[in-house]
Amino acid sequence: MSMLIQVVLDGIWSGLLYGLVAAGLSLIWGVMDVLNFAHGEFLMAAMYVSFWLGFLFKLDPLVTWIAAGAFLFILSVLSYKLVVKRTMGKAMAPLLATFGLSMLIKNFAMNRFTPNFRILSDTVMDGKSIIFGEVVIPVPQFVVGIFSLVVLGALYLFLTRTRFGWAVQATAMDAEAARLMGVNTERIFLLVFGIGGACVGVAGGLLPSYLATHPDIGTLFGLIAFMVVALGGFGSIPGALLAALIIGLVESLAGFYFAPVYKYVAVFGIYLVVILVRPKGLFGW
């Protein structure tokens, strides 16, 4: 029984992590109808920022996530200006252009930093855990989970409770009409892309506390983020959180009951089943 609780908790931790990683993607997709293929590589870039700050200046990821978030905000704004803005509205062009961007970032990291796995030793949270009877809660995962809930909650409140958030929602529903109502949609797109990038920057900034950094790490995270967003439904933040938890739990339970190698087969399989029953995702309209 305690084993099962442990497995479920592990699933919740990875689910919350996926939620944090996918939050920015969900925002961008929902508002701009752009699937940013380079999302996973943004995460990887943020991990390198945090890793190098930790390695060179002995700063802990608990601090450097701020720098990683800021760096990713800038990187995203640049990506929007240089790549996304110039391809938006042309069928598959943004998807393929951001795929080109992902190749660029990934291979730049490969070229500069080598494919080696880089591990930040003795971070504050590394290896620490809270023990409740027979159940162990690893601290890094727990902290990332808290961050995830805070970031997703903040995004949700921002979208539903602020004037700027209403303008974002109006733009998402009908950019043309929003423009006629005096919303500066150009600025909205820019900021949404920047904020979306900053969210994944926060996730990537925290991850070096317990994961190794390498140029390929973004690929799987990026794919899972696509699943989370598509499963949750077009730009729905609560949907993304629910989808992320489902994916985390499926991954953890499949790894436990079958074998670890089948956990992503189960994740992608569940995704296909749900999406075929609800083609617009769980919370989509």
Partner: peptide
């Protein structure tokens, strides 16, 4: 000699430019 991945960096750039100027 420029290290691994340079061909793919150029590849990525070409894809971006092609999508921007002539989809």
């Amino acid at each position: 000699k420029l290290g691994s991945g340079v061909d793919l960096i150029i590849f990525g750039l070409i894809i971006i430019l092609m999508m921007e100027f002539q989809p």
